[in-house]
Amino acid sequence: MALSGVLRPGFVQIRVLDMAESIIHYRDRIGLDVVSTEDDGRVYLKAYDEFDRHSIVLRECDEAGLDMMAFKVSSEAFLDEYEEKLRADGFEVTPIAAGEQPGVGRRISFVAPTGHRFDLYVEMELSDNGPMTNNPDICQQDQRGMKAIRFDHCLLYGTDLDGTKKVFEEILGFSTAEVVVDDDTGMIIALFLTCSNKAHDLAIVRHEEDDKLHHVSFLVEDWNAIGEAADIMTRYDISRDIGPTRHGITRGQTIYFFDPSGNRNEVFAGGYHFYPDNPLRVWKASSVGKAIFYYERELNDRFMTVVT
């Protein structure tokens, strides 16, 4: 598969209650580098193995949650095509000028049927602290904390899951890798969308409130790294949700925890590779415990109801 169109989740802008505490969390505990702090107070960070300038944007606010998730697109032609199709489908598309975030080119922005704002863009400056390209070492400098490799995906909660599914599949070219469906009605309860070879780039769960963030996820190296992340959580008294454990869906190994504003984070490793000709994997809601937590085989209530 030649990857074109939407390439990957590029960045997220997260609302935090206290910037100083949040920087300690994302920089020292998760292990991201601070790229810049801008005049409007937003703080830009990146993981060590990302080529682009930034992937996590923190904005101080009096409520937690997600401002927007942005995807990187392979060419201006695709961006124009998406804009046209979104408009034709009745979406309001807002252009965002280059430079609204440092180093980022023009974006287009729309609100999906689940109430989430998504941005699309082509250009982002390369980081001067990204992966080496000449006789490359594993990384340019020593890693910190949980040693997050990259920002990987988000899980979002909202009501009109079918509507958002349609936009991502039909306009943005995503595939659905897995679903959880109601045993009787077949209604989709959870949806795992991919624009790449990854098992998921975006997941959505049906929920009675729109525009909710369940988690922002970072890739780590392996199962050992998840154990080390768990050590860090206890050592620094980070609020832990669940894990280390494994997902049936995507098969990733995982641990969930909360940032100092109550936004959920995940660090995960592994998972299968997806190809667009793969058949859809389907879980019945009656087996959802195993789908989400493969070892516990039951959901904890917090995982299903706590969002920001």
Partner: peptide, 12 residues
């Protein structure tokens, strides 16, 4: 009492 994020973000 329900325990959520423990950080003042989720409201539960």
């Amino acid at each position: 009492i329900p325990v959520g994020c423990r950080k003042g973000g989720c409201g539960v």
